[in-house]
Write a protein that binds this DNA or RNA. Structure first.
Lengths: 199, 199, 199, 199
DNA sequence: AATGAATGAGACTTCATTCAT
DNA sequence: CATGAATGAAGTCTCATTCAT
């Protein structure tokens, strides 16, 4: 038994545990009530702590919010990076692949609903997050256009925005895993195949 | 030419003019700063009026906001109703028609930017507005599916949401008239034709 | 037909009628809600008039209130003056006479309930009114003590206050005419005969 | 003598002391100016505190007022309960006993003049307090009538009201201890013996 | 005789934030 | 590490009152 072993188990000091608790509770409160309608006193009360303690761990209410939004964005960016398609595919495989991308976004957004609400759906942060996402996706698309996967007569930026818009509206509802799969399939179908009946 | 003719010109009383001014200024302030960061004192100051006057025309700050949001939604719903396609079209004409719908939405959203910000982009009202729009569009789509214009293997509700999501993200930027035309064309292309290159 | 005749019929100008209406409505509103909770806007709304009109007839909200209180006090003082007993009476007749005084007070207070509420039961005016009444009664009592009608080992001022206190508490409830008669009889009994059983 | 002894001395925390101070000052201010004319800013200024502090200890201005009125009523009810006469007495002793009851009320009302003003003399609470007192007294009287101490041809409710009315009017003036004794004696005389001279 | 329109002055209440312990 | 206690700074809303017509 080496000490190494303990290193893998997260050993949190009391202070770190408090920080985590505050972050978790803050996320839940912000998600439920929105930034403006959440009071610091709500957060500490739900945490069983006092107000000054909150300020031991966060510069301000706004800083706490930023911290949460920032965390969400980092995760989202990381995910997006993994979704780049790097090789040519058949149309059928492309459909599957795009569907998988949608699904991974939907799953990601469903994973931590409070954080998602704060980072993706709620003002004041949601706009910037979506702009970021749109540009990350656009940058993927640009590469995919370059290898001839996608049409190039629509700008990658535009496609990125449309992609984000679809995700945004569709993921707004809380969806079960099968519902997410279905939604991803339909979104892919729409985006790849287009709106109308084909002969 | 008799004085009668003036009867057709809207003659506003002083009070009505004040109401209009307050509404206009309030819309601008709300649009610029958001609901929570707009103070009644900002609005009246920018209107050259006193605070109590505000309360002569609106129940509360919130009521004023609702009034503006409501107005926006009514207009948006009316527009949407006019965009139903009622006859079968060739693929080419359909593309044009869908493009025209996008364009009309973009033009509408650009027409009164302050009101649009409040009703469409800003919390707390934007979610409900978009849900409304999605359902109005879905109801159009359902009819269009029924006459065989659009594929039916994706639910009209889903298509409505995707449509709204695209509009939302694309219209977020302030666009000039030609930019809007371009954007509408591309969105239509994407939604009708799909993402990839066709042989 | 002489013009004299019309003199007996109250011929009110439009302005006088408005004044009366405002006074009546104001009395009702003040009585119902109290001075502080009655808004000038309540009064004029209930009168079908506008706020500036109120100020055509009263200096201020407070002045209107004073006018009503003053009117009540004048009537009450006049009544009290008529209740002086000027001749010696048998004990039985005295009881009747004191009972009659109580009854006249109760009837008076029931006559115009709104005005009574304002002048007799409600602050801020009620204290002064009762002090006035107590002193008017005391002055009657003094004379009645002088002619040997009442005991003199309790000061007339004290008796006046007790009298007023009894009236106040007993008349607080809205009483029907028979209830008032009964109340007056009991009060007289108590005040003349005393609290206990006599052999 | 151990430190233990201090345990019997009420040790108030800083917060409790602040609460007490605010209550005391609030009572004085309310008593002096009345509820409507007392501003929270008056109270905190006279307490050397800031406005938010007031709201740390009371829900609202009204709640603070209620707290004071409630305290007064509780004390008054407790006192009244002790004044029930449970044994038969001679007329002379009864007079003394009733006089003592009056005196105890007068002393009680003089004890904490600010609280008395709020709970007993001032609107909006005074009416309910007096109704309460009248009914508590009536309930004593009922028992005293049952054992033949008092006449039963006047209802205990009526006697209760008269008793309260007398207390109310007589105690209105600020009286010194000897004046209170004199007042109590005269009131007892009046209530027991009646108004007129006896042979 | 009456009013549409406007306001000065101020009250209550809230909340993020800090100090001293 | 944690908190009891306190507050600066605002913000919404109310209401008696007045001006100009």
């Amino acid at each position: 038994m080496s000490l190494q072993k303990n290193a893998s188990v997260p050993v949190l000091t009391k202070g770190e545990k408090t920080h985590v608790r505050l972050r978790t509770v803050a996320a839940a409160e912000f998600a439920q009530r929105g930034f403006h309608n959440t009071k610091v006193s709500d957060i500490v009360q739900a945490s069983g702590l006092s107000q000054p303690t909150f300020y031991n761990y966060f510069e301000s209410k706004e800083a706490a919010y930023e911290e949460l939004v920032g965390e969400f964005r980092r995760r989202l960016e990381a995910l997006t990076k993994t979704l780049l398609i790097e090789t040519s595919l058949s149309q059928q495989d492309l459909l599957t692949s795009v569907g998988s991308s949608f699904l991974q976004f939907f799953d990601f957004l469903a994973e931590d609903p409070a954080l998602t609400a704060i980072g993706f759906f709620q003002p004041p942060g949601c706009t910037a997050t979506k702009d970021g996402l749109a540009s990350w996706i656009a940058s993927n698309i640009a590469k995919e256009q370059a290898i001839g996967l996608f049409r190039s007569d629509v700008s990658c930026a535009r496609i990125g925005k449309c992609f984000v818009g679809m995700i945004d509206q569709v993921a707004r509802d809380t969806l079960s895993a099968p519902q997410r799969a279905e939604a991803a399939r339909e979104c892919a179908l729409l985006l790849c195949d287009g709106l109308w009946l084909r002969g």
